[in-house]
Amino acid sequence: MSVSAPEIPAKTTSRFKWDLKTIGPLAALALLVLLGITLNENFLTYNNITNVLARSSFIGIIAIGATFVITAGGLDLSVGSMAAVIAGVMIMVMNWLIPVFGIGWGVILAGMAAGVLLGGVAGVGNGIMITRGRIEAFIVTLGTMGIFRSLVTFLADGGTLSLNFQVADVYRPVYYNGFLGVPYPILVFALVAIAGEVVMRRTAFGRHCAAIGSNEQVARYSSINVDNVRLITYILQGVLVAVAVLLYVPRLGSASSTTGVLWELEAIAAVIIGGTTLKGGYGRVWGTVAGVIILGLIGNILNLQSFISPYLNGAFQGVIIILAVLLQRPKRAS
């Protein structure tokens, strides 16, 4: 339009900007690894690394679900209690069904199916109340968090639900064995992470989540079905909680009222450390993966050294969370 046009028309530029925001979580991860190596020669052993990653994978899988929920401007505080209920119900279902299927994979598969179904239903419950009932996500999931927690206490009658030990023997390899030396939980975590990253980056659903979290009105005016997309994020979260539980149950073979306590906060922390904005609008799954591993490594490194009490684990995690947000906050004008 204008005759002189020093303003260059919009043109394609590189998609990646290597600023602190992008490399922050990776840099922190690299620093922690270096720290671990210098502090203890056992840090970089196969056993230590697989152990840290396998333990992190439960929170990791849940946190990937939370990345979607938070990106779309929501929040799910109920995931920890939900994990406990799903674990409890899975164990009960498997114990019940032993007379029908006998000891073996049949019973385990039935239990897994029940777990995934329950996770999905719990997600639908949260999602429906939030989208159709128009109640704040914080309130709804604070409520269901309490409900799920007391439900598992009730089911366990205040004690512990234990899986039939013969079934537990069959099931155990799902946590402790692996493929080509990589434990199954780590494999599943990796698969979920890759799928999550692709969905977030390369599908309309991922784009819609970010749009809704960024500005719900704009999303509505842009013909996005806001309620449905939101609902799906909660269902996805529920199903991923169930997937995490499928890997968790064979580890201990039991569930009690203390199962999954504070998992919701760890998951949210991992998401935030990874660079997803808590108020929604921008999310990245690989960041969450880095966040989960960072949290796992802090505990691990504290256990491997002898200068600082490992009881300070929580304090270090807290500092990391605050630092992450500090580094990622938008630059102020000027």
Binding site: A210, S214, Y221, G281
Partner: peptide, 13 residues
């Protein structure tokens, strides 16, 4: 600003 554009996102999305 309120209903048309996602201000924190780029031109393409």
């Amino acid at each position: 600003k309120g209903k048309g554009l996602l201000l924190n996102m780029g031109l393409r999305p």
